[in-house]
Amino acid sequence: MKKELIELKVNGRSHELAIEPSKLLLDTLRQDLQLTGSKRGCDDSSCGACTVLVDGTPMLSCTMLAASCEGQEITTVEGVSEHGSLAAIQKAYGDWGGAQCGYCTPGFMMTVKHLLAVNANPTEEEVRSALSSNLCRCTGYSQMYQAIKAAIEAEQKAVPST
């Protein structure tokens, strides 16, 4: 298929890419931009390992065409860290054992980032509902739940409420 020139905004930077119009967003991120954080898991849009934010909304990059994301702001796990250091949620996942093999973690990061962006203080039910979008086959979800709680507490300590 003939390649076309598209402009993709990823993690705050614009990239001009020559890709096939049929190319999936996940493949474009991994192969053309070398952003290999987002993973291919089930490849049939159930597992959530490829989750990225498109204009702030979590979506599955294995089921989207890169060309149709032109003009939208894409955030991958590589864009989660703050000024080169780990974001609170990334640190908490490490501290609380939220990742074991780590394959699903980038997807979870994006889901959790969105959860905390729209709701700074989610209830237990809201956290569990958000986590239900992604599959983890080794650690389980309890450690992740604790990590998220810890990250919320860390954020609240860092930004004293006035």
Binding site: S45, P58, M59, L60, T111, S133, N134
Partner: peptide, 9 residues
């Protein structure tokens, strides 16, 4: 339907 992320799509 499906999961929260899939319902965004």
């Amino acid at each position: 339907v499906a999961s929260p992320v899939l319902r965004n799509m």
